Amino acid sequence: GQWSQAGGIAHHGFAGMFWKAVPEERWPEDEESVAYIKEKWVEPFGDMRQELVFIGQNLDEDAIRSELNECLLTDDELVEGQEAWQRLPDPFPVWS
């Protein structure tokens, strides 16, 4: 999913597919596109990642990092895999 917020205006919704979820035979064939896909590829998760950007004045970076780190899976939860993750509570509505 994707969440974008500026001030009091926020949007969230479907953000597309990770290339990890697309069979390689359906990937683009040109070298530039494949290089872009593999640029941030890390096994075993491929291009599946999250990126956060915070822009503002007087942000408390340590506090923000601490709060975000509390949201991360533990190492044990991570190795349990997708089946276990699907049993975790999801605070978002179903993506359409």
Rank of each mutant, 00 (worst) to 15 (best):
Q2C: 04
Q2M: 07
W3L: 14
W3Y: 07
W3P: 00
W3K: 02
W3H: 07
S4Y: 11
S4P: 00
Q5W: 01
Q5N: 03
Q5A: 09
G7P: 09
G7M: 08
G7Y: 04
I9F: 03
H11V: 12
H11L: 14
G13M: 11
G13C: 09
F14R: 05
A15S: 15
G16H: 07
M17N: 11
M17D: 14
F18N: 14
W19A: 13
W19N: 07
K20T: 02
V22D: 05
V22F: 04
P23V: 06
E24K: 15
E25I: 12
R26A: 10
W27C: 08
P28V: 10
E29G: 08
D30M: 01
E31P: 02
E31D: 15
E31V: 04
E31R: 03
E32D: 12
A35N: 15
Y36G: 14
Y36N: 11
I37Y: 06
I37Q: 07
I37K: 07
K38I: 03
K38N: 15
E39C: 02
W41E: 08
V42H: 07
V42M: 09
E43T: 12
P44M: 04
P44V: 03
P44E: 03
G46N: 06
G46T: 03
D47R: 13
D47M: 13
M48F: 00
M48E: 10
R49E: 10
Q50I: 12
Q50W: 00
Q50M: 08
V53E: 12
I55E: 14
I55T: 15
I55C: 12
G56L: 08
G56I: 08
G56V: 06
G56Y: 06
Q57G: 02
N58C: 01
L59G: 01
L59Q: 01
D60W: 03
D60H: 01
D62F: 00
D62P: 00
A63R: 13
A63C: 09
I64V: 08
I64F: 05
I64G: 06
R65V: 03
E67W: 02
L68Y: 04
L68P: 01
L68V: 14
N69F: 08
N69T: 06
E70H: 06
E70K: 11
C71A: 12
L73I: 02
T74Y: 04
D75L: 13
D76A: 14
V79I: 15
E80T: 00
E80M: 13
E80Y: 00
G81W: 09
Q82E: 11
Q82A: 09
Q82K: 07
Q82R: 10
Q82S: 09
E83F: 03
A84C: 08
Q86G: 06
Q86W: 07
P89I: 09
P89V: 05
F92D: 11
V94F: 02
S96H: 09
S96A: 13
